[in-house]
C-alpha cells in the first residue's frame, strides 16, 4: 500500500507533467481553476490521468466537482485509495 505522502508526490508529479505546470506553482492551497489555469475541459483529462496512474475509478462526480484546490484533490485521491485497500 502506498502512503499518503507518496500519493501527494505522485499527484504533484502527474499535474506537473500532464498539464505542463511549474512545480513551484503546485502548492496545496493553489486552486485548480484560478491559480493553475485549468478549465472544465481539463477536468476530464485530469480524472483520466489520475485514474490511470492509481488504477482506480473516480466515478463520484459530486466529489470530483467539489474539488477546488490541490489539497482537495490529494484528499480525494487518498480517500479513494484507502477505500480501494479496504475493499481488497
Amino acid at each position: 500500500m502506498i502512503s499518503d505522502e507518496q500519493v501527494y508526490q505522485q499527484v504533484t508529479q502527474i499535474m506537473a507533467e500532464e498539464f505542463e505546470l511549474e512545480p513551484e506553482s503546485l502548492q496545496p492551497d493553489a486552486t485548480l481553476y484560478e491559480d493553475l489555469g485549468l478549465d472544465s475541459l481539463d477536468a476530464v483529462d485530469m480524472v483520466v490521468a489520475l485514474e490511470k496512474a492509481f488504477g482506480m475509478k473516480m466515478t463520484d462526480e459530486e466529489a470530483v466537482r467539489s474539488v477546488r484546490t490541490l489539497a482537495d484533490l490529494f484528499d480525494l485521491v487518498c480517500r479513494l485509495k484507502n477505500r480501494q485497500v479496504t475493499k481488497e
Binding site: 507533467e17 500532464e18 498539464f19 505542463e20 475541459l41 481539463d42 476530464v44 483529462d45 485530469m46 483520466v48 490521468a49 490511470k52
Partner: peptide, 11 residues
Amino acid sequence: FRKAFCNRMRN
C-alpha cells in the same frame, strides 16, 4: 494540447 489530453485521446 496538454499532454493529459493527448494521452487520453491516444489511449
